[in-house]
Amino acid sequence: MTHPSNPGHPPRPPGHGSQGDPYAPPQPVPGQRPPNYPPGPGPQGGFLGSPQSGPQGGPQGGPQRGPQEWAPVERSDKGLIGALLDANFNHLVTPKLVKLFYVVALLLISLQCLFDLGLGLWVTTWDDFWAWGVVVLIATPLVCLLELLLVRIFLEAVVVRFKTAEHLRVIKDKI
């Protein structure tokens, strides 16, 4: 190796090396990911803390979990009746009912749309108010689409709120 003052090599900042050579690149700590390391398998082929990861985790070296390692939360998913009877509110009912609310809203808006179209057709048969019937026929699909959009936005906001609460619970359980 040549001397760092050699003009053929660019100067390296001090402090990036091992104990013996201050200009050597930093050595990775076994079993830990360096910062900016992409997610995926660890150095031994398995995820950190998994049974395949060798001496840092699993049956070979004993389970070792650091604060930065991910561990799945063990929770049982109760049905609708089980969630209703949960007095601790650990299992939420609303996320289970959002799909049902959306289907019911789709049916009610569709029925309203059909009723409005029928009303518009009926009003167009009148001699003096046929123009109002045409306005109702033109406005009905637009109003129905607006109602569908508003219901969808509201239910998505509800789902996002509950997913946020679920993810916060996972974070809390990890700590």
Rank of each mutant, 00 (worst) to 15 (best):
I81L: 14
A71Q: 15
L145M: 06
A24W: 05
W126S: 14
P141A: 00
L150Q: 08
A157N: 13
L142M: 09
G57M: 02
P10F: 11
G79W: 00
P141F: 00
P26K: 02
P26D: 08
A165T: 09
K174W: 05
G54S: 00
H16L: 13
V103E: 12
A87M: 15
P67M: 02
H3C: 10
V151S: 01
H9V: 15
N90D: 14
R33L: 07
R161Y: 15
D173Y: 11
G49Y: 02
R12Y: 05
G61W: 01
V135S: 05
F89Y: 10
T124Y: 10
P25C: 06
N36E: 10
W126I: 10
H167C: 15
L111K: 02
P95F: 06
P41Y: 06
D128I: 11
G42T: 04
Y102N: 14
L149R: 13
E69P: 00
V143R: 00
G42R: 00
V123Y: 07
P35Q: 02
D116Q: 13
L111Q: 04
R12N: 05
L155F: 03
A157M: 11
I153W: 08
K172E: 15
H9E: 12
L121M: 09
Q112P: 07
R161V: 11
D86N: 03
D21N: 05
G54D: 01
Q44Y: 13
L84G: 00
W122R: 13
L148S: 07
E69T: 10
C144Y: 04
L92C: 07
S76P: 11
L168V: 08
F101I: 09
V73R: 06
L119W: 13
V29D: 01
V104A: 07
L97P: 00
P7R: 04
F101H: 10
F154R: 02
L145V: 07
S76W: 12
L155G: 01
W122G: 09
G133C: 02
T125P: 04
S76C: 15
P63S: 15
P59V: 08
L111D: 08
L84T: 06
P28S: 06
P41C: 02
P26L: 10
L150K: 04
P4V: 08
V104K: 06
W122Q: 10
L168R: 14
I109E: 01
T124W: 03
L145T: 08
G79S: 05
L148Y: 09
I175S: 12
H16I: 15
